[in-house]
Nucleic acid binder design. Structure first.
Lengths: 332, 332
DNA sequence: CTGAAAGCGCTAACAC
DNA sequence: GTGTTAGCGCTTTCAG
């Protein structure tokens, strides 16, 4: 059992705790601990499977070498990938990352953030669902990097894309390429700025083409009840409107579930539609029909978040950075 | 900044640390702290945004109320979902879960497990990639629950399915239903027992039907290089063999990537095939053709893991449990 | 080269 | 009802 402690070793080996601490932390040579002592200590550690307590260490040093990662849903391909890459990156830098899903719930998010702060994470990377969390983090003095979502007028480090521009650009080009006019747009409840931006970008792209976006085709489905809600909304619109010629899924959730609905219940309509989605799932490539995808640079986002966090941690400059990365449209 | 401590409050408010500790930990009434004092302390805490240090608390109490979760890949739908549910469950029980991806790498897995033990997690739930990690965990005395993968002859708590039986049952029924004889089987490098069991189940199902499984159709693709490897292996077999009538994807990775390969490069062949996969992705339902899925009860697995862990934590009985859950075949 | 000792923030047995 | 105090396991300054 993990009862070994630095004191015990000290007692058993009749050396002082200092000596052991130095050896464990690679300062043995610096403090010129004799090779013999070093070996004795190392052997003992090896033999007794001793694991130094990070807790105690963190308590003394004030650093825990842990980073919290909060996203709405770790099982979502986008957040999952970003999280995984960040984890890998920071692990290489000596940090352990704690991933958690907030389920898009402000209470939950705040609680988790608090819990992490209490555990003295050195920093937090998050796709914020609520401003309260951010306020809390600022007050607590925790180095924070946000990604994916930018809350209007908040002064906090950010890594992500320009949702408005990305959406505008892609839809603009889409409209030039295809003679589509009646574009169904499917979004989840757009409390988050991200989705509002994407929707606005689309509408403005229509305008830019001298068209007017048909407002009744701007659908919102319920995040908590995606399958059912998709089915109802899509069916409703299809019954009313026979001239839909294209669909814009504004994120990967609506892309999959929306496509699913069409595929299962409105297959005949599907064939004739031009499809485009924000976020690009591997699935987009082999669906029938294929779906053009606006792809976020997940790995780049993860890298930037990691780098930014590390620089925050090391350099302590509290200048706020916004890193905006380009998207890539995969036309199909 | 987070410099407030219980001592500081004590000094400022001229009460003792004990009093504050009791109030924070909900023992105020038990120890009959006066309402007035309680209020003063609570107000102070509120106002100064005081966050008690879990580190210090854990150090004293020996409990950290954290659980580690290790899986090969959090971004994989199966592990991601299981992880997410466990997280939710245990969070309700007052525990925070730390999810991490091991990338199927024994070194990495061990390192992460060690790091977690050093942080004094109260327990670890993992889909083990290597026995070393398990040995380490046993030695360290950390309550451990494994899921998904069972290492032969290891005495450790386990939650999962019977891969052999599930595979056998499904393929057996598949063979009765469909007149298939030439079944391509696609697996990733089956170092893990899980996949070996699934393969064996399939082969025995053939035998059970009085058939002999055509060994050259048992394909193995490279986990690290899935896309390329799938392409090469599948193409190679298809060139040699024109009578393939069905495909068995032995996990969700080969299911998606295998289907992808067929869809992109061998579409014409795909139409005539009967498909079945271990693990059932939402995608299976709307692919063309559809894919029958052997579905693991992800939520049940998560629940059982959580319950088992909690009972380990509370009851301290070290009797080893193996919980085997049934699968469900979604015929399509 | 090594040891003594203070202190990180909190809990809880024991005192008053 | 509230205070005192001894740890929890580690780091690190200061002595020797």
């Amino acid at each position: 059992m993990n009862k070994t402690s630095i004191q015990k070793i000290a007692a058993d080996l009749e050396v002082s705790t200092t000596t052991i601490s130095f050896i464990i932390n690679g300062k043995a040579d610096k403090y010129k601990i004799s090779k013999a002592t070093q070996k004795r200590v190392r052997d003992y550690i090896e033999k007794n499977n001793y694991q130094p307590s990070s807790l105690a260490r963190s308590l003394t040093t004030g650093k825990s070498y842990t980073i919290g990662f909060l996203a709405p849903d770790i099982a979502n391909p986008f957040y999952g990938q970003v999280g995984k890459h960040i984890e890998k990156r920071l692990f290489q830098a000596g940090y352990q990352v704690f991933l958690s899903s907030t389920e898009e719930d402000p209470e939950m998010e705040l609680k988790m953030a608090q819990s992490m702060v209490q555990r003295q994470v050195d920093g937090i990377i998050l796709a914020p669902a609520s401003r309260r969390t951010l306020t809390f983090l600022r007050k607590s003095g925790t180095p924070t990097v946000t990604f994916d979502r930018k809350l209007p007028r908040s002064k906090v480090n950010f890594v992500g894309i320009d949702n408005y521009q990305a959406s505008f650009g892609a839809i603009n080009e889409f409209l030039s390429k295809n003679k589509c006019r009646n574009m169904l747009m499917i979004s989840i409840t757009p409390e988050v700025d991200t989705l509002k931006q994407r929707i606005a970008g689309c509408i403005d792209a229509f305008e830019n083409q001298g068209l007017k976006y048909p407002k009744h085709l701007n659908l919102t489905v319920d995040y908590q009840n995606l399958e059912q809600s998709c089915y109802e909304e899509i069916s409703r619109v299809l019954e009313q409107n026979h001239s839909i010629d294209s669909v814009y899924f504004t994120n990967n959730l609506t892309a999959f579930r929306g496509f699913y609905t069409f595929s299962k219940y409105h297959r005949s309509r599907l064939e004739k539609l031009k499809l485009i989605s924000f976020d690009d799932l591997p699935f987009n490539e082999i669906s029938h029909p294929v779906i053009t995808g606006i792809e976020q640079p997940k790995e780049e986002i993860a890298n930037s978040c990691s780098r930014l966090m590390l620089s925050l941690l090391n350099e302590k400059k509290d200048q706020v950075k916004k890193i905006i990365l380009p998207v890539q449209v995969n036309w199909r």
